[in-house]
Nucleic acid binder design. Sequence first.
RNA 1: GGGAGGAUAGGAAAGCUGGCCAACUCCGCCGGACUUAAGAUCCGGUCCUUAGUGGUUCUUGGGUUCGAAUCCCAAUCCUCCCA
Length: 928
Amino acid sequence: MSQFNLSAFEEEAHEQWTHAFESNPSALEKYYLNVAFPYPSGAMHVGHGRTYIVPDVIARFWRMRQKQVLFPMAFHVTGAPVVGISKRIANKDEKTIRLYRDLYRVPQNILDQFTDPLTIVRHFADEYQRVMTACGLSIDWRRRFITVDPTYSKFIEWQWKHLYDAGHVMKGAHPVRYCTVDENPVGDHDLMEGDKAEVIKFTLVMFRFGDAFIPCATLRPETIHGVTNLWANPDVTYAKIRLDGKPWIVSKEAAEKLALQDHTVEITGEITGSDLVGKTVSHPLCGEVPILPAPFVDPDMASGMVMSVPAHAPFDYIALRDLQQKGQYTEIKPIPLIKVEGYGEIPAQYAVEKAGIQNQMDSRMDALTQEIYSAEFSKGKLFDKYGGKPVRVAREEVAELMQQKYDSVVMYEFDQRPVVCRCGNRVRVKILHDQWFLKYGDQVWKQEVQDHVDTMALVPPEVRAEFDRTIWWLKDWACTRRVGLGTRFPWDTNQLIEPLSDSTVYMAYYTIAHKVREIEPKLLTPEVFDYIFLGKESEDLPEKKKLDAMRKEFLYWYPYDFRFSAKDLISNHLTFQLFHHCTVFAGQKDKLPRGMVVFGMGLLNGAKMSSSKGNVFLLEDAVKEFGGDTVRMFLMGSAEPWQDFDWRNELVLSTKKQIERFYNTVMEIKDASGEPHDIDRWLASRLQMHIAKTTSALENFQTRQALQEAYFGIETDLKWYRRRLPKDCDGSRELHELCSVWVRLLAPFIPFTGEHLWKELAGEGLISFAPWPVTDEKLVSPKIELAEELLARTVEDIESIVKLIQLQPKAITIALAPEWKHQIFRMIAKAEDKNTVIKEIMKDESMRKRGKETTDTAKQCTTLIHRLPPYVVEPLVQDPINEKAVFDAAKAFLEQEFGVPVHVVMAEEAGHVKALTALPFKPAIIIE
RNA sequence: GGGAGGAUAGGAAAGCUGGCCAACUCCGCCGGACUUAAGAUCCGGUCCUUAGUGGUUCUUGGGUUCGAAUCCCAAUCCUCCCA
């Protein structure tokens, strides 16, 4: 008998699988599923494993259900990250090199070539394919592509033409990080410092100083009425400028920044901070306020001038208090204008005093500012005299008003500093005007998507709410970039299509990916794709024969049936692709996606997997160490796909033992040749149920549930079966059929072991294509199962009693309930009104004669019926079993189990008080 | 801060259209059988208690109900997305 040797099985299977999963249109019904393709910038870890193994299990399942299954894979290489990686490697960045050399184990000679970004993604794309294959993924690799293939770019151009024609692509202005030395926008990877910094939008409130404006930057324009003064840094020399022709006073840094943000700036002079201090400016809405000195004012923050709202800003409150404690400006009082529960009259004062903050240098100031900011934003309301609106509403409205009527302008600034370019220069915010957007904000477009989502199958159902929300929350999306790999933007070839935007309809491209390569890219005009995907005829189409073949593929496969992805992509990619499908296939509802399955995230030993933190376990290592089947079965069995899952090496080991146990069991019993016994009928009946349950679980993507049934369910039954076999009897020859079913049910999960066992069982062809087991109704026998359940429950009861009394039993008597108790049981179980059922029973003379005995039994039966599962009670009512026959038949078994004589008697004949407690389905047990 | 989803015994995880629930299943651990032994396998146990029973449980605190892990409210914590 051949030994369990997973790696040998894997080798065997791989040989037979080469090209086996290449899938072409056929007479069979199709099933097309796909996964969000990977960005191959590093090695695969076990978290990736599950993302691709789940769809593979589903693919294998439907393939065995005799569908024509398409499971393709490609690689997403568009975007900037690898460009950054290659630069860092070129710059000999230690951290990056360590990651690639030590964690991902890239050989030095290849690492040396990683200064070219394409080399990185090509290397890891190959590695992905190798590891995916090692995991047994049944992918049609002919269709593999990467997103910078020239043919793919042509496809993207076609797709974008449709978006553009539909009016969904538009040009606009957009603030970006910008390096004034490189004269280029700056991506994450180009930053030396400040990669977390975000661009935020300030409103500049204009105070009038003589004929000039002094702009103060604020995130809280709604507090304008609470301004008591301005702050200027007395140690700073400010610039007098003409901004768009108007005189302004700002910091020198601000002058430089504003010039990048759509303003013409001309420096006309200087004025020191100390010259400003003590002067007054006129408030845009009301009266005059003074300029006070404040060393904390940073000239490099926004305009370099700050408006002070001491009632609501802790910094302003403290700065003012400090001055007043020196006896200065004592006439200034904070002006509260926002009411917020739990913060007293003057929130900033309340919070500062409650925290016991002494001065501006206190380290808690930032947190306190954030706290007030949040509290007021979420719960605050303006005083009635200022409109009485909630802060979150008023903020927008006031900002709008200030811009419309009071000369306010918007200024963009980073939320943290410094932000420094790799070249060493400071990065600024610049407004670019040739930025292109996808108008996801378009209400009509949203509605189209919503209408379609309503018809889609979403798994698990809970994610529907998140899709719905995302559709309506999406705003216009900046869809072009200047740096990275990708397809050139057709309407501005200096720019590239942004990575999330170029991978939205590629599921359609898969259908033709292997054939479109045969055509020269330059021939792939939009008309060509219009023909392939939309059936639009036009003159002079090249290579018509090939196009027809592709058209045929597309029509056969599309739309896809299910797309699989982790849940983090719901709010971008998964929703984007629906927007794009709705436009590209406008008017062809039958080409829109049918369903999606959304996964949970992966953990490693309870912590988040993260390559940068080194908390990863490479999938390849896992496969080598434990075997492909083991990795698959562990990942599928520990949680359902949509749950987060945790990988723990010590748990995986026991999964391997389980596979081995399965293998050994099958090898042991497959050639059994005994005559069938009664218990074989039970086993066959149970098997039908497991087939049905496994099937329905897989139809619903419940991999764990399916394994539960297919593996443990059958294993448990087999144990009982073998226990129940008469002494010295081997299993019957019917076990061969059970093995055949069992191996097929598990084949989607453990295909390597599956293929090997299939051969051992003399199965035809590859198990990967063998027909999925179907239930045979003829073999289903609820009655046999029920009888067996009665026996098993009784055995359990006997065991628990034997254990409790701690005596060595000499004999066991099983006393069965008399027929009249069965009658009561049935009447109660059937009765709709439990209150009158006793009366009903008492109508019977023979029952009445028994008196209290009857009522007691009725009570006990009521309790018992409650305790028994419906699947037991129901058949007992419909078609009672003959308990005597069951136990008589099992007498030998029971004696063998307990090693003492077993007597089966009717309760009346037992002559023992305990016997009187016998109930239907619950015989009395007397142990001597 | 906004949104979506979670929290179940040592670990993972089912149940969650209210009564089949002391709560499926797997792992771990403990005991027994087999074995020279280990491993594997099989049997049993694994909240407390007990002739097959009863008690206290499903993050915490309230509520609805004859009855709640399951429904409602609040709090705490976790995950993902956006800000």
